[in-house]
Amino acid sequence: MIARILVGLLLLTGLATLVARRNLVKKVFGLAILNSAAVFLFVMEGAHSGQGAPIVDGSALQIVDPLPQALMLTAIVIGVCVTALALAIAARLHRATGSLDIDVIKERLGNGHD
């Protein structure tokens, strides 16, 4: 239970970083943390389903459910792809406005005009 609460707090930390920090790179930090919290939850809870890693090697241990692990491989990769794209956009915005601060960027781009 304590572990799950900690994962929950990790998730909320990510969300708070994403919303509260105005720096674009910080927002991407938040997204990465948010994503890793979800991955952690899947893997950690899935580990309760057995005693051994899901590799069939003749040992007598009951294996853990391999499905959440396979899903999380995909989720991790998608997460890093989103991160990379977000950072590329952030770098482009910095080039256009000279700032990473979302409010400053908005102001320099003009409110409602492009």
Partner: peptide, 15 residues
């Protein structure tokens, strides 16, 4: 530790 070596390798390589 959580018996997920594949995820561990991916997380280390990617993350």
């Amino acid at each position: 530790v959580l018996k997920a070596p594949d995820v561990a390798i991916t997380e280390a390589a990617v993350g």
